[in-house]
């Protein structure tokens, strides 16, 4: 089942890859965590710090810390789709992205060609934003709220 994917052209060396692959789902809770990471990778604490800073600067990493579960904070994510006529795509896209509640907006190959996530505080707010999106664009947004979540891996092999 595992296909060993071809590594892509990046500026990452073996140690960078090891760092990225080994520390996506946990990090030492020790006063000197970077020292422990360095011991594992066979490099100094200083070099770990330099490497992480460089990976952040070069845009490989978003952040180093927790990946939050927004719903535990009382928020609500709702995947939403629209069928946007191609000749209106840019215009509608601009309107939709202007909503602060909209995140992760992707164009996809389907009749429903615009897919984004609404991040709201409540169901009531979600319904209101859906209505405002409808009014602002003249296109009906279809919400696909999650009924059940099976897997959040979000791990990527470097």
């Amino acid at each position: 089942m595992v296909d060993s994917a071809v590594q892509q052209e990046t500026t990452l060396d073996t140690i960078d890859r090891q760092l990225i692959n080994d520390y996506q789902s946990g990090f030492p809770l020790d006063p000197n965590p970077y020292q422990l990471v360095g011991d594992k990778l066979g490099i100094s604490e200083e070099e770990v710090i330099q490497r992480i800073s460089r990976l952040l600067d070069d845009g490989y990493l978003t952040r180093f810390g927790p990946l939050f579960n927004i719903e535990e904070f009382g928020g609500l994510f709702t995947l939403t789709a629209m069928e946007v006529p191609m000749d209106r795509f840019e215009e509608v896209n601009e309107i939709v992205n202007g909503f602060s509640e909209v995140a992760h907006n992707y164009e996809r190959e389907h009749q429903l060609n615009m897919w984004y996530v609404l991040a709201c505080e409540s169901q009531q707010e979600t319904d209101e934003v859906l209505e405002r999106l409808h009014q602002a664009t003249g296109i009906k947004p279809y919400p696909f709220p999650k009924l059940q979540e099976f897997y959040i891996g979000l791990r990527f092999e470097a």
């Binding site: 892509q8 990046t10 180093f64 927790p66 579960n69 470097a158």
Partner: peptide, 28 residues
Amino acid sequence: VISELDALAGSDRVRRMGIVVKHRPLGF
């Protein structure tokens, strides 16, 4: 800080702790 983080990492509010990658620059 360490003990609070330990408790938080095991709670439902945090999916996981660690490196958060950008998948596009990694080639995905």
